[in-house]
Design a protein around this nucleic acid. Structure first.
Lengths: 120, 120
DNA sequence: CTCTATTGCTTTGGACTCCACAGTATAAAC
DNA sequence: GTTTATACTGTGGAGTCCAAAGCAATAGAG
């Protein structure tokens, strides 16, 4: 990238590293329950809405709904709708979604062993 | 943990996995710029406030300030204050902070190669 | 025909979070 | 007296999160 002798940007890119470009998927993951949701969905081949809710009962319906459509926009989750009554919708990780989950899992597993994880 | 034959909780812990306990450090990381900040600080031995700002100019001063005190509370960053004029404060990762960063780096590096990373 | 059950959401209003921008404190240099 | 330097905190407005209720559609029970 840039070397430390050249000054290109006024504030960022100070010594060759600028984190500003990290706005895409990291922004999507930097929201409440986003990482947990990716992990949960990836632990199953596909999941229905109520099933996802059951695995993360602390998150509100509306938040889960929002996260899922953000994931869809980011291309890490697919939504498949079956026109039945009662309705059936299935969510699954895309290939990119699995790539995220793969890199997320070490963090989540380590976090689960921490003392500050609040149980229920 | 629990086996799938026993039903303990009404909604969570459906098939032996409940993500609700993941509230500690993951909550701290699930905020805007939190992951980037850990990465930035960990790339240096210690950093001053203005220096951190320079590496992440998209984040507001108040947000960086909040993130830093959340990190301090979570025990992943130390704040060292030198009583000089003008004031000098140094931030550095703790051992736990480095443990987080270690598990965060693969994700951030992969994210940086994605097409949806917005430049500037 | 009305009532209930089922699923996957959306809506609502109130609390909390993020932003840009301005202000605070201190003392030395000019 | 004004400027400079650093590390923040405060403010008001926009956006985000929550619990709880509501909606749409139809099958089956009574």
């Amino acid at each position: 990238m840039a070397d430390s002798t050249s000054q290109s940007s006024p504030t960022c890119d100070v010594d060759g590293t600028c984190y500003c470009p990290l706005t895409g998927i990291i922004n999507t993951l930097s929201r409440k329950y986003a990482m947990q949701l990716i992990s949960i969905i990836g632990a199953h081949e596909s999941m229905r809405f109520a099933e996802i809710e059951a695995h993360l009962s602390k998150a509100s319906t509306s938040t889960i709904s929002k996260r899922l459509s953000e994931f869809e926009n980011a291309g890490i989750v697919t939504r498949t709708q079956y026109d039945e009554i009662p309705p059936r919708v299935e969510y699954a990780l895309t290939e990119e979604g699995y790539a995220v989950r793969e890199r997320l899992e070490p963090l989540l597993e380590w976090a689960a062993t921490r003392s500050d994880t609040i149980v229920q």
